[in-house]
Design a binder for these strands. Sequence first.
DNA 1: GTCTATAGCGAGATAGAC
DNA 2: GTCTATCTCGCTATAGAC
Lengths: 218, 218
Amino acid sequence: MGRPRSRDGGGNRDTLILDAAERLFAYHGYDAVTLRAVAREADVDLALIGYYFGAKQKLFDTVFQRRARILNEDRLAALASARAECDPIPLERIIEAYLRPLEMAQESEDQGWRNYCALLAYVNTSPVWGPVLMSRHFDGPMEAFVEALAAALPRAERADLYWCYHFMSGAMSLTFANTGRINVMSGGLCRSDDFQTAYDRMIPFVVAGFERVCGPLK
Amino acid sequence: MGRPRSRDGGGNRDTLILDAAERLFAYHGYDAVTLRAVAREADVDLALIGYYFGAKQKLFDTVFQRRARILNEDRLAALASARAECDPIPLERIIEAYLRPLEMAQESEDQGWRNYCALLAYVNTSPVWGPVLMSRHFDGPMEAFVEALAAALPRAERADLYWCYHFMSGAMSLTFANTGRINVMSGGLCRSDDFQTAYDRMIPFVVAGFERVCGPLK
DNA sequence: GTCTATAGCGAGATAGAC
DNA sequence: GTCTATCTCGCTATAGAC
């Protein structure tokens, strides 16, 4: 399982670089981050970044790829586990299998996962990166989820499933991006980093949306 | 010489600059866009940008502000119009009042509105801009919508309303960002710029979500 | 209002010593 | 593997001619 590993204070230099880059890319986006800033953040010499990862682009790709693999594994494992209990998988369990790994990532001690979630939101909503990186790294597992959804919602039009998946992806992105916007908006009533609460509301919200648009459950 | 060059179909120079900046910021984000690129895109001299708008930051603020005003007016007008028919306003009408102006903006001939929607998505999901710009320009009208939602869903906890509003905002952002991701994802079955279809599915999706999380309708 | 020219800075990348 | 040093480029911003 791709559980977030707690790291010792040091770590290898290349890992330090990836962590620092992840943190900065997540917050500022690709273009606002200079390799010099990454080097400073990682407390590493500038030239070392080039040595390990090549050009800036490749560093970004590597950062994005690193946890995408783990996230996909966790999601597919959750889906398989749900299927083992009940086949076809009930809608709510599918949504949970999709969202739960992110929630766990956010709740984990490894701050890197929180950063990665923000990075995911950035990439997902970017016209530049979105169609390229999301498709490259998440289309395979996504297809498995759409199949499961189709089985749970047999009356659904295929296109409607994709649209609803898309809405879920958007709600998830903004939520786990943890921008702090909802804190300001609600006057402190809601907290952007209160993932348990967010998760507990997002699941029924999304489930109800799928049911309404994609017809009755099996 | 320093004479205004004649241009067919061109507006004032400052408007040309704003349109060009909007288009580029929407697609590439703030940091990837250079003032030189804006000047090139607007077919205008670089120094003119500074003359009209000052520093790059201020140009960005101006671009963001320009249509925020209009969007807010349209939304509030739609809300008032719905209230004139029925008070309290039914949930679905509230959601429509919120989303419809964006859909109309997307469907309009003015390509600038499409760009602006993508810009909104960028700002909304950005940890840097989100809490600042969204709050500054959209919190007032947002409050009116939350009040209307509270009236339509009298059993709802206040915090739940904010969370659901947040999910709606996320789904909307990704959809109207028009990244093309869903095109790739669905293998061409859905089109990112088919806003009518997106809108027709997003409304029931969001309405059902609100109902499920925020209790039964009045 | 418009444009030329440039100051002043910091970026990405890499060659080569150790 | 690590770091020093540097090359080359393009950026923002602005002063000043027209």
